[in-house]
Design a protein around this nucleic acid. Sequence first.
RNA 1: GGAGACGUAGCCAAGUGGUAAGGCCGCGGUCUGCAAAACCGCUAUUCGGCAGUUCAAAUCUGCCCGUCUCCUCCA
Length: 444
Amino acid sequence: MKLYNTLTKTKETFQSLKPKEVGMYVCGVTVYDYCHIGHARAYVVFDTLKRYLTYCGYTVNHVQNFTDIDDKILKRADEKGQPAMQLVDEMLAAYFTDMDALNIGHASFYPRVTEHISEIIVFVEALIEKGFAYEVNGDVYFRVSQYEGYGKLSKRNLDQMQAGARVEKNVSKEHPMDFALWKADTASEIAWDSPWGKGRPGWHIECSAMSRQYLGNSFDIHGGGMDLIFPHHENEIAQTEALTGIPMAHYWVHNGFVKVNEEKMSKSLGNFFTIKEVLKTVPAPVLRLFFLMTQYRMPINYSDHELKEVGVAYHKIVAALSAPTHQIEADVSSFRYDFKAAMDDDLNTAKAIAVVFSSVKALNATGSTAYRDLLLEFLDVLGLTIETPKSEEIPENISALAAQRWQAKLAKDWELADTLRTQIQAAGYVMEDSKDSYKVKMGE
RNA sequence: GGAGACGUAGCCAAGUGGUAAGGCCGCGGUCUGCAAAACCGCUAUUCGGCAGUUCAAAUCUGCCCGUCUCCUCCA
């Protein structure tokens, strides 16, 4: 398959380092708040990538971190007047509730920063030893000017970055772009002893240390949202490659943003919707389908209206799968070929879903189990679980009305039949007739 | 100031040189007592604008217009 690599700015043919095995590191969340649908998109994308690689016969070793100590966590915990680790535990639980709802498979490992302090310290010590880092009053900084490749991922050089108006001034740093590997902290409740005194890790170092521990010095895919390209991933590359001298990851994959009214969804703008909220309005697979109907690198503008439209499309799939099927042979190979071709092209789920709808059409037209199985196969790769329409409890009075209407219809008393149908609809239910039976469903 | 992305029908969205996928909506038809569902058909001579390259461009080049992102925490 081909994957767009941020590092080279081209679609490259994916080739794993080890045959049939993929090492993939996806940057996780800082657990201080509920996840919004921007997070949802990112993890849906990488879950779908993982599912497709698995479908293609790879074993995917997926590692995703949790940043469970940092300024935002401490600040939020302080505001809420609760211990930081309690906040972390709550948000961690909420994370899994949200992701499970979206059918996002679990990673092989979920390393947490607070459980890898010693590995981080060893990493920082090694960087100091090699001259890539220096200590100032208990802080340790990465020496950006010492690392030649700095800027190769985000395609900018140090001069350009310094020209930016928003580079923070910090007199203790040798270079304004030097970033913290270790932050001195003697005041807060959570700090660890280190060769440089009490403190905690900087943000970027955790991913360098933990990816190295679980996936090795060099692995296949490193992913996250576009906003992580700089500085986070740039800094990870600097740290790891300064230490090892070999490429950290071969494919750097980044998903596009979720926008609201054409603006990036973000906490600072306050324009975010949490996964929790959105899933109150639509079934989880609809949200997932909403994301997958756009190629992962394109921005998506979130709106209730769009989500509703996708909901209608989703119902089409559900309806097709709810209909009875028959053991009928069918040659599905061209559908599968098209589906794979789409997915092979930089995970073009938008195109792949066109094939899904072709399968839906074929299934509706033929009632063949072959198309049904094919459709289920595609949906599984896309992580779309179809909720089998539950035999919803239809209130007794409604079923009674429905039975009456059916009798009236058989008696050709159209007037009574229509009156009863209207009553049923007024109560929020729908009657669907077929040749010799009828169904009562919840109205939309 | 620097770096980059995007602009395709009423809405969403594929398509990177060979003559516009798919979804939603809308319209017509089949079926149905009427509906619903399903099925069939129709719905962009045209891809932000203007030039250029080419036998051929939504796709390449240049300029312009518009929107967004990154350079600070961010999926």
